[in-house]
Design a protein around this nucleic acid. Structure first.
Length: 312
DNA sequence: TATATAATAT
DNA sequence: CATATTATAT
């Protein structure tokens, strides 16, 4: 029957419409717990969030910028707008907001300068940034396995896998490393005929291994009927199990996960074990700890982006 | 401290 | 690209 096939572009547009406006957003400086409520429950009042915190936020924002090569200036303006908005809302809570406009502007100017400065440094190095350790979440691994399965062992090489996975920010090195581990895992599994849940392999154990990988796999799974047409050009026209997502942050696309520890452990809450050395946290099953790391520029730019091209 | 896993070197 | 080694996180 006549079904409306909504394109990604339409969906993105619709999604954008639902986005809250700047004025609708809760200012960064606003305390999550009202003062009255806090005092009623004897909760220590949050430290004043002022310029300093805002500046930190700016730095975080810059993290996004550093992975985006090109029109940085535009992004800067957006960033500045946001930060300024927050600042104005912030406006020294203690002081009655009478007068002192000049000072406020001075602060804003300061922030702007800092943002610009760091942005400049970011644009300078662009790709030479050291990214945090990649965390292979079960979903990411799932995608990996899926792609490898579709390629077959023979064609499953890091570069191709990376391309087909189509995960932003994922590098060939990442895939290569993981592939190495995965192959070793498969080898172990086959060698021991029966499953031997070793203490390791938590991730792999959680993801079923397609039989396609067990022995000799030929070419790809003839996704769309192999043509007899001589394909002199090496342009693969189809094997893309994972189409480029419209960049919906809440959607399923397994975004890349990075471990984030700004600072080491402060405080010594040593786990230990009296007698046991197994202080492993629960399985690395993924909770919704999605940080906004993947260089996912605002979907503002028309979704005519190829897919993943900036890095590598 | 040991173990697991990702990064890097060969 | 595959494998070995090193680095880092839990």
């Amino acid at each position: 029957m006549g079904e409306e096939v909504r394109t990604d572009e339409e969906r993105v547009t619709e999604w954008e419409k639902g986005l809250p406006n700047l004025h609708d957003l809760t200012p960064l400086s606003m305390a999550l717990i009202p003062p009255e409520l806090a005092s009623a429950f004897s909760i220590s009042p949050e430290p004043h969030r002022t310029l300093f915190d805002v500046n930190r936020a700016s730095r975080n924002t810059l993290s996004l910028l550093r992975s985006n090569s090109g029109t940085i200036t535009n992004q800067i303006n957006q960033t500045m707008s946001c930060e300024i908005e927050d600042i104005e809302e912030d406006e020294e809570p203690d002081r009655d907001g009478s007068g002192s406009d000049s000072r406020k502007h001075r602060k804003i100017d300061s922030v702007i300068e800092e943002v610009e400065a760091e942005a400049d440094s970011a644009v300078r190095t662009t790709e030479t940034i050291k990214r945090p350790r990649l965390v292979w979440t079960p979903q990411l691994h799932k995608r990996f396995v899926d792609v490898v399965a579709h390629l077959g062992i023979k064609n499953a090489v890091p570069k191709t896998i990376m391309q087909l996975m189509n995960v932003e920010g994922l590098t060939r090195e990442n895939v290569a490393s993981h592939l190495q581990k995965y192959r070793l895992y498969l080898k172990r599994m086959q060698g021991l005929s029966n499953d031997a849940p070793s203490s390791s392999d938590h991730l792999f154990a959680s993801t079923p291994v397609p039989q396609s990988l067990h022995e000799t796999a030929s070419a790809n799974h003839s996704n769309s009927h192999s043509h007899s047409h001589s394909h002199s050009h090496h342009s693969v026209t189809i094997p893309m199990p994972y189409p480029p997502p419209p960049s919906s942050m809440m959607s399923m696309p397994p975004m890349i996960g990075m471990g984030h520890h700004p600072h080491g452990h402060m405080g010594m809450s040593l786990p230990p074990p009296s007698g046991g050395s197994s202080s492993y946290r629960s399985h690395p099953f993924n909770m919704m700890h999605h940080r906004d790391w993947p260089p996912n520029p605002h979907s503002h730019s028309h979704p005519h982006m190829s897919s993943n091209d900036s890095n590598k």
